[in-house]
Design a protein around this nucleic acid. Structure first.
Lengths: 226, 226
DNA sequence: ACAAAAGTGTTTTTCTTACACCCATGT
DNA sequence: ACATGGGTGTAAGAAAAACACTTTTGT
């Protein structure tokens, strides 16, 4: 038992918001790690690792995310199980892939080096295995989910202005949104509540800070614990 | 290599449309198989099996679906990977679960017996493992997907009347739909085209037959082959 | 005073829903 | 003729989009 000739691995696509390369508007970034063994030695790849016997799939994703890139996820959701027979040369690997959102703050903690580096989400180089496909799919899922759920929260701090929230949506969706209509949609959703604080310092009317209502859940638990 | 102490299995939730138990309107049914070994000997469970080294995940799902219940899927999509450490007593099993739609005709071919039986989708008994949770999630996904994709097709024959198509939607969603508005939505979607045939025999105006436009793809290939 | 972003109001358009009504067939 | 479901028309209501306008700050 236990040996079916198939290896099981867990990988994670991690998203964070950081300034664009030219210092401009916030953009989506992804950390990748360099392969230090064959196959695909030297190529960039998604962080990942094995599934330990005592941990759940989501725990495994959180662990290896922490150990390889040292960030804590604010949101974590299963993406897909990839298992084409030829996706890893000379070996049979089924990868259960998660995707995660981390805080802008966390994103800074990740020490870049020879073997870990941030990439703009839709400008990644050729990656090991089928990881380009996986990232494309994760991006599609993120953009989709952004339109009907409150995950944008996970990319921001505890409080935020509605302009910041809109910029997150714009960065993820890749298109500008009408500030007036966006404001109304968010306010009427009831997901968000105004604090009594404003942000001064900008050379214009100080924007109000908002916070999300309800529990700050770690992520989509999927079919479990409905 | 290959032995991580974790077993990998593939299971499938199969949906078909059949008359309600009282002979009434079409309803969703699911075939289940009886456990013939421990754990959970004697309980009903989802059909499933191991992943063979040469086959893809979807192929594995299609194979064991064919071998255990002898039906061919018209639609096949990955549902979720279930991997809680305690979901199988005394063993560590990760199940990659697919869901499938089969033709009403196919559904008849399945010979029921001591070890295979059809159940009304939302009236299944207590099942082995976490299979009740899995079926609930599959139902949720099916109902969701029905609202924005053309999967209803897979439960019908090549041609169909708009009333038949509406009845599929009603059976899956569990609520009545306005025939007039449903017709307009479908017709304006462009997914469907009228044939030059009508169905005679009913004691009323003969309804026109329609057919889906475009390729009758086997299913959602997921992230692959965008 | 002026620029710039925050925030409000109003109109237009588009999609959904409800429901009245006519059509074609078998009995 | 009439019952029955097929099929069309239309108007009310809700939601989304477009855009003009007012407010409050820093310089």
């Amino acid at each position: 038992m236990g040996d079916t000739g198939v290896n099981l691995a867990i990988s994670t696509v991690i998203f964070a918001l950081r300034p664009a390369p030219d210092g401009g508007a916030p953009t989506l970034w992804i950390p990748l790690v360099r392969r230090i063994r064959d196959p695909h030695l030297g190529l960039w790849a998604l962080p990942g690792g094995p599934l330990l016997p005592e941990e759940s799939l989501a725990e495994a994703a959180a662990h290896n995310l922490k150990s390889t890139t040292d960030v804590e996820p604010r949101y974590l959701e299963q993406l897909y199980a990839f298992g084409e027979p030829d996706r890893s040369p000379g070996d049979r690997v089924v990868s259960i892939v998660y995707w995660a959102l981390v805080h802008s703050g966390e994103a800074e903690q990740l020490a870049e080096g020879e073997n870990v580096r941030w990439f703009v989400a839709d400008e990644v180089p050729r990656l090991a295995f089928d990881h380009n496909t996986i990232i494309e799919y994760a991006l599609w899922r993120l953009r989709n989910k952004m339109e009907y759920s409150r995950i944008a929260h996970a990319l921001l701090g505890e409080t935020f202005t509605l302009t910041q929230l809109r910029e997150v949506h714009e960065a993820v969706l890749g298109r500008p949104l009408d500030p007036a209509n966006f404001r109304r949609q968010i306010e009427s959703s009831g997901d968000v509540v105004a604090t009594d604080q404003v942000v001064t310092g900008g050379r214009h009317r100080p924007p109000r800070l908002f916070r999300y209502i309800g529990s700050v859940d770690l992520g989509d638990t999927g079919p479990l614990s409905g």
